[in-house]
């Protein structure tokens, strides 16, 4: 306990530090801060939650059938190894997300440049677009694009899904670009201009390469958000991960197992993405 009082003394003023109650509460605080106690607490909480869910499921007479889940991920048949339905759903989800993210990045960059252009019309249009998209629920935007705009411009549900996700996320991405571009000091612009570069050349060779470092973490975050929001396109029956999950459940009534599995798959994908990008960030940090 010598350690505890040593930690505590420099912070508080000494009169109150010496009262027994204060000392006791400090000790308890420090106890809770120590690592083994924290880990223990964590497991206790998890155990309690798990215990309660199992008890709850038992009480409603839920019939756990975890043994059936692996078949939906992959199977070994006489033909050898085969991917399961959930895997194909995942591929579709990733396919959708990648396309939507590329489109969102392009649109976001365009909107950001429009906003920074200094043209009254340009920044006006960008601002209206931003406010419109940002203040609309994703689900409403999806319905709007699929049921209203889709029939007008004749695109299918798959394109509607990609466009919806791209539009929704382009708003945030454009703000990420704007912040990144603004983070480059004005002197860089002046230096680029002073060697005769046009605005486009300054962006391409001087400004954007420097802002990437600032933009990578929030862009990753946005990619993760996009993968997660791609689940919503299940409402227009795109056969992606969430839709597949729902279909399996309606066939098998294994809601608990399948939803847990689907959640896990999303988690694994986004974690892999985050890890890759944090590696990329380190490389950029070393370079400059």
């Amino acid at each position: 306990m010598a350690l505890a009082s040593e930690n505590a003394s420099p912070r508080g003023n000494h009169r109150s530090g010496k009262t027994p109650i204060r000392q006791a509460s400090r000790r308890i605080q420090n106890l809770f801060r120590s690592k083994p106690v924290a880990v223990l607490l964590y497991f206790i909480v998890i155990y309690v939650i798990a215990r309660m869910s199992v008890a709850g499921a038992e009480a409603m007479g839920y019939n756990w059938q975890w043994y059936r889940v692996p078949d939906y991920l992959f199977q070994f048949t006489e033909d050898g190894f085969q991917w399961g339905e959930i895997f194909f759903g995942l591929v579709k989800s990733i396919d959708l997300s990648v396309k939507a993210f590329v489109l969102a990045t392009l649109v976001g960059l365009f909107i950001a440049l429009l906003r920074l252009s200094g043209l009254v019309v340009g920044s006006g249009v960008a601002l209206v677009y931003l406010e419109f998209v940002r203040n609309m629920p994703l689900l409403v935007l999806l319905y709007l694009i699929y049921y209203v705009i889709g029939p007008i411009f004749k695109f299918d549900r798959y394109s509607a899904a990609i466009i919806c996700l791209a539009v929704y996320h382009s708003a945030t991405i454009s703000e990420i670009f704007r912040a990144g571009i603004n983070s480059v000091p004005r002197g860089q612009w002046e230096a680029a201009k002073s060697i005769g570069m046009s605005v486009a050349q300054s962006y391409r060779f001087i400004i954007l390469p420097q802002s990437i470092k600032v933009m990578l973490p929030p862009l990753t975050n946005e990619a993760v958000q996009l993968i997660k929001s791609s689940a919503i396109v299940s409402v227009i029956a795109i056969a992606e991960l969430t839709t597949i999950g729902r279909n399996i459940i309606s066939d098998t009534y294994m809601s608990f197992e399948i939803w847990f599995t689907v959640a896990m798959v999303y988690l694994v994908v986004t974690l892999i993405l985050s890890t890759c990008v944090s590696g990329l960030e380190k490389r950029f940090a070393v370079r400059s």
Binding site: P185, G187, Q188, E190, A191, S194, I195, I206, P209, Q210
Partner: peptide, 13 residues
Amino acid sequence: VGMVFQQFNLFPH
């Protein structure tokens, strides 16, 4: 016209 700035303004990347 070349210009040299007080703060150098080299391209750090």
